[in-house]
């Protein structure tokens, strides 16, 4: 059981607002860790801090033995950290294929990789996500479900060790949501990635995650097995209201 990511007392504030306050936890290699919390709990901010969009005000983030606390986002990606976005952010003027080509080219350093090599590799990831037939469609013309697939293909093409999946089921119908969850499971099996999954849909997380961390008002309030977390009175209180940290 190797720790792939270790977050140690990280904090982040925006002006007077404490978005993340002294949060610590770690992710074990190969597991699916769920990150839960009501709206505004600081889940996406935490992911932004780990992926490099925001720098932590204090604390320390270690990824596979490297201190990445002050590292720029692109170098974190090259180390093996990738992400999808809560609201899909495709490259609108690039085709699905070219969007994935960018990740394949710049994700992990590969020796002597040409544009054509990257296109071949990108085709594989598009096929995996069921988007091969849409390879020549511009990002702006894809549907929400296809965009979720494209985001995953793009993230996988960087050959990551750890993927942050931000609310993959948001806006999808039950059938599409089921397919999206299956896709994540397959990605884990085939590519051996570790997943940190932010989700509001509790049922999905209870099934897929081995452990769950709960945030509330920027603080970690609970960590443990999904069943234990779901039955924790403090977590229930936070979700149903009348909880103040």
């Amino acid at each position: 059981m190797t720790e792939i990511l270790k977050i140690d007392s990280v904090s982040k504030h925006f002006g007077g607002l404490m978005a993340i306050n002294d949060v610590s936890f770690s992710i074990i290699e190969g597991e699916t860790l769920g990150l839960m919390g009501p709206n505004g709990a600081g889940k996406t901010t935490l992911v932004n801090m780990i992926t490099g969009k925001y720098l932590a005000d204090s604390g320390n983030i270690q990824f596979m033995g490297h201190d990445i606390t002050r590292m720029p986002a692109y170098r974190r990606c090259k180390l093996g950290i990738s992400r999808t976005y809560q609201i899909p952010r495709p490259f609108p003027e690039l085709t699905a294929l070219m969007s994935v080509v960018v990740s394949a080219l710049y994700g992990k350093d590969r020796a002597n990789q040409s544009l054509e090599d990257a296109a071949t590799e990108a085709t594989h990831y598009l096929e995996f996500c069921g988007l091969f037939s849409k390879r020549n469609v511009l990002g702006k013309d894809l549907t929400l479900y296809e965009l979720r697939g494209l985001e995953l293909a793009r993230a996988l093409a960087t050959t990551p060790k750890l993927i942050f999946v931000d609310e993959v089921m948001a806006g999808l119908n039950p059938d599409e949501a089921y397919k999206a969850v299956r896709l994540l499971e397959r990605a884990k099996e085939e590519f051996g990635v570790t997943i940190l999954w932010i989700e509001h849909v509790m049922a999905a997380l209870m099934q897929a995650a081995q452990r769950v961390v709960v945030l509330h008002y920027g603080q970690k309030i609970c960590e443990g097995l999904p069943q234990d977390v779901a039955n924790d009175p403090y977590v229930i209180e936070c979700y149903l209201g009348s909880c103040h940290v």
């Binding site: 992926t51 490099g52 969009k53 720029p72 986002a73 692109y74 990606c77 090259k78 990738s82 992400r83 976005y85 952010r89 490259f91 609108p92 003027e93 690039l94 960018v102 990740s103 710049y106 994700g107 992990k108 990002g139 793009r154 960087t158």
Partner: peptide, 13 residues
């Protein structure tokens, strides 16, 4: 040209 932030997250310097 399309999205700087995403480009950086995908490994582009």
């Amino acid at each position: 040209n399309d999205d700087e932030e995403v480009a950086e997250a995908m490994g582009v310097n």
